[in-house]
Design a protein around this nucleic acid. Structure first.
Lengths: 336, 336
DNA sequence: CGGCAGGATTGGCACGTTGCAACTCTGCGT
DNA sequence: ACGCAGAGTTGCAACGTGCCAATCCTGCCG
């Protein structure tokens, strides 16, 4: 039912090639034809059919972004970075959310392959590198945010999670804290790296290795943090840790909220460090010390790396120099 | 470079029609051909080209969702509702975010028209009904979430914002509060309706009309709430309102946080009511009384209304019976 | 053994767009 | 007056898919 080039051409009294030229090579058009085509397009409200364009072109000038869990604030920042760099380069960007489900993740990859996007930025749940290498054979390049096994065709953008964990640990130790609880998710490699960094700090300080108490939660959400906070609040003073390092800010916010509800003082009774430094970290009653992960910049870097590969397929994969962690100290560790 | 039906057909030793039949009408295939085609598809890793499919079909089995500001938690709930109902009906769903920018909103609509989606669910920024009616002429139906002028072709799903505002007002008045500050955004009609509901409650109680103090903020974010909270905290006891009604939960969370930082007691000194009842409302140090807006159900209703129109184009537009508001009372108004 | 029913398979076209090669036309130089 | 340059325009093919009508084949009945 919508108008096609043919309809426009008929109304304008020119051939469809001329209409196509008007859209894609305006400079070759004569003045009078251009005017006729312009009027006809306006009159019919013609909008080029993107599917036909893509079919003709062989692929769409589009990228895809697949996120582990789009509702976490950190992923907002990441996606804005990818989005901006895509828009600047004139690419369209399709989003999708794996919702922490491996089937959904695979389904999203399949869908984007069917839509012939040219490249994919993915923050993966499971090991997707073999699948991505398969896609690379078929001309779809990709960039993984996070650590991956070495690959000849799949690039990655790294953040120094372990170093960030170490910064958090050193900070807490320097404050004299000696019983540190780590709240994280063993199923996400980044969480484990952050824990390893904490262990590094403890080892370097020559402190007792049993000072770390690991608490595993399913999703790193505020809700999970509230549960953990309740458990900690119920502990006796003797068994309660004097510091908590949370694997992300959202779970830290939950812990903080629950501790405050129970009248436990932060940082006097328990010091608290989060991770990511999202906006929420300084929007809490006691502003949160956090390890800054530059989500926006990481997103930009991932998008830029992808676009570079697509623009110049002969270029080498960019060397994965990790983004450095930075500790942002606020009142949840040092008071006012 | 990727394989096409032709490649599959050549490898399987059958015609491309047979391959097409295998994919779309498996029952007409013979046993042996089916097996050959299956093997060839597997061997080549063939994935049908979605663009070509859509071109052939005339339109994609896809819907679009355009949100005013995807980062607000309320919109997560809304989008999950639309997403679920779309998936259940076998439709793909494309997301996009207007980011509170009218140009972006228009650009998104244009993009989805070019991609020939069959329908659009939109939570609009500006008045988009004329544009949507134009789309309806070209076969793209749409459903607006929120109030719209009467239209023959554009459906809407309504929520009783005014009634919700009234509930909040009645609640605060019944608690004996007499100086109510309203925090909202004049540029969003829903915010104004909520304020009007508050005024209704005050009028009905025969109370002084100057008891309402309207504070306008730009975006209804937590950051805006922090600013407002700071202003309120600096007021003298005499001029400080004894109740605050915020147009959404995020701004309420900001206000609450700032008040608590300044040692102002909630609800003893200032009672606080939010709007939407998102998850964050019960994840605060003092859980937030809020007017529940069933975002998930509203999203489902919008998606279902759209799919109904597409499935049966002769059906009348569904009557827009508004979703009712419900007050969820928590400690930010009644204490413990 | 001829014919025919009906299942299985195929050729060809159309969807809307774009790029290329080919064509027309105007005006200018010789 | 003739040719030619070059700007402007056009016809045609092709992208990958899906559907329709047409064809092929197998086996069975008379």
């Amino acid at each position: 039912m919508p108008a096609s080039v043919k309809d426009v051409a008929a109304l304008a009294g020119v051939s469809s090639s001329t209409v196509s030229n008007y859209l894609n090579h305006p400079h070759v058009l004569g003045e009078s034809s251009a005017a006729k085509v312009r009027d006809a397009i306006a009159q019919l409200g013609y909008v080029p059919n993107e599917s036909a364009r893509q079919l003709r072109a062989g692929s769409s000038k589009a990228l895809a972004l697949i996120l582990l869990d789009a509702w976490l604030p950190y992923f907002h920042e990441l996606s804005r970075g990818v989005e901006d760099v895509a828009r600047e380069g004139g690419w369209s960007l399709f989003f999708s959310n794996s919702n922490r489900d491996a089937d959904t993740e695979r389904g999203n990859i399949d869908m984007f392959e069917a839509h012939r996007v040219q490249g994919i930025v993915i923050y993966p749940l499971e090991d997707v590198v073999p699948r991505l290498e398969q896609l690379a054979d078929r001309g779809i390049r990709s960039v993984v945010v996070g650590p991956i096994p070495p690959s000849a065709t799949v690039a990655s953008v790294l953040f120094d999670d372990r170093g960030g964990g170490r910064l958090a640990g050193e900070h807490l130790l320097s404050l004299g804290r000696r019983r540190i609880a780590f709240v994280g998710t063993a199923s996400v490699s980044q969480s484990n790296d952050r824990l390893q960094g904490l262990r590094d700090a403890v080892d370097a300080a020559d402190a007792a290795t049993d000072m770390i108490d690991v608490i595993d939660v399913p999703h790193l959400t505020t809700e999970d943090g509230l549960d953990v906070g309740a458990r900690i609040a119920e502990m006796s003073d003797a068994e309660r840790p004097d510091a908590i390092f949370a694997a992300n800010d959202m779970v830290a916010v939950g812990v903080l909220t629950q501790l405050l509800r129970h009248g436990i003082r932060v940082p006097e009774d328990v010091a608290l460090v989060g991770f990511d430094d999202v906006a929420q970290a300084h929007q809490t009653v006691v502003p949160l010390t956090s390890v800054r992960q530059p989500g926006y910049e990481i997103g930009r870097a991932a998008g830029a790396a992808l676009i570079r590969q697509l623009t110049d397929p002969t270029a080498d994969l960019p060397a994965p120099t990790p983004f450095a962690a930075e500790l942002i100290v606020r009142e949840s560790t040092v008071g006012r």
